[in-house]
Amino acid sequence: MELWIPITIAAAFCQNLRSALQKHLQGALGTTGASFVRFGFGFPVAIVYVLLLHVLTDRPFPLMSLPFALWAVVGGVAQIMATILLVHMFSLRNFAVGTAYSKTEPVQAAIFGFVLLGERITAGAVMAIFVGVVGVMMISVARMPLSWRNLFAALFGRTALTGIASGALFGISAVAYRSAALSLGGPDPIMQAAVTLAVVTTFQTVIMIAWMAATDLSEFGRVARAWRSSAMVGLAGVVGSACWFTAMALQQVAYVRALGQIELVFTFAVSIFFFRERITRMEATGCVLIVSGILLLLMWR
């Protein structure tokens, strides 16, 4: 098995755990605070991770450049905006469906990867991604009577557009992070990914602190009072990000993000067993299609 595959599955699991914890925190912190803890409690871990790689495995620090800085900023800002939209979306529909809308990301990541990096994917991979996105769309309309009007509302309503925008921003950030890591050069994708993660999460923390200071100082107190749960979000987020960054340094973004749709399977488990949310038959069918798309991707890529 190629290394990027288990790393991506681990990333999807950690991302699902982080999202579940963020949904739990949203009521206590609000959208901005629940988004901030992902970065603010994660960046120290990212820095320690880089130092451990350097000290324990004797990996050298890569040389940074202007292209690296530009891609890191683009990716960092896009991910902040995508995270805020995703957390906000949890208040519009249930946890599983809210996450499903953002899973249109693989198609958008494939487009951005082609436009920005010239990365091409096989016809079989395109079909596999399409199967997965059909599953996502089934989930999005599962809780309403099937009609053209409801289908239009599901695809172009507030929740859908918020989710699609979140997916687009996640797609942009993924391509930017791969570009940043590759711009560092060298034969060590693990160290390149780790340095990219540390720089980006530090930058994101500074941006979020400035934003919260300018808009709602009381949010800092709420974050401090929920520090235990916030720390768990940060830890799950930074471990997941380390896995994402490493996988995307090893493989094209479209493939990594398509396999990452397995997160939705984890999401349904959390939705059922943790949040006690009822899952319909069509949502379950959509989940099966997503898994089928993932299996086809691994066979046809």
Rank of each mutant, 00 (worst) to 15 (best):
T159M: 11
T196Y: 10
L3H: 11
L51W: 09
A226F: 10
P189E: 07
I209R: 11
T196V: 11
F43D: 02
A20M: 01
L250F: 06
G240F: 04
G30Q: 06
S292D: 01
M137R: 00
L3A: 14
V291L: 10
L182E: 08
E2P: 12
M208T: 11
M282W: 09
M232V: 05
F273M: 10
Y177I: 10
R93C: 12
T57P: 05
S229N: 13
T104W: 06
V48W: 04
V45G: 07
L289S: 10
P60E: 03
P106V: 03
V233F: 13
T201G: 09
A20C: 03
A247S: 09
G42T: 05
A11R: 06
F39P: 06
V45Q: 08
Y177G: 03
G30W: 00
L66N: 01
A254R: 01
A226S: 15
M191R: 08
L197V: 15
R278Q: 12
L151C: 03
C287I: 05
F275T: 14
S241M: 12
D188M: 05
E219N: 12
Y49M: 14
L116P: 06
L25I: 02
F13D: 02
G135H: 00
L161P: 10
S292A: 15
V133I: 15
M299A: 15
Y177S: 09
S102T: 15
V74W: 04
L85T: 08
F203K: 02
T162F: 06
H24N: 07
G118D: 02
F266L: 05
V233Y: 12
A153E: 05
D216A: 10
V195W: 07
E119M: 11
Q26E: 15
A46V: 01
T201A: 08
F95H: 12
S183G: 08
R158C: 08
V77I: 13
G157H: 08
M1C: 12
L250K: 10
V233C: 09
A174I: 04
L155N: 03
M64Q: 15
V97M: 04
G186Q: 05
F275Q: 14
G118L: 02
V253I: 14
T83Y: 11
A254V: 04
F68W: 11
M1T: 13
W227A: 14
T201P: 02
K23I: 02
L259Q: 03
M64R: 15
I172D: 00
L21R: 00
T267M: 08
A180E: 09
A269E: 11
T285K: 07
V73Y: 05
S218A: 13
A123I: 14
S140K: 02
L298H: 08
M282P: 02
R301W: 08
E277P: 08
M299W: 14
I294R: 06
Y177D: 04
D58G: 15
V107E: 00
Q204I: 04
T205K: 04
T32C: 04
T159H: 11
F220R: 09
G76S: 13
I294L: 08
L86Q: 05
M282L: 15
P145M: 11
L63D: 14
D188Q: 05
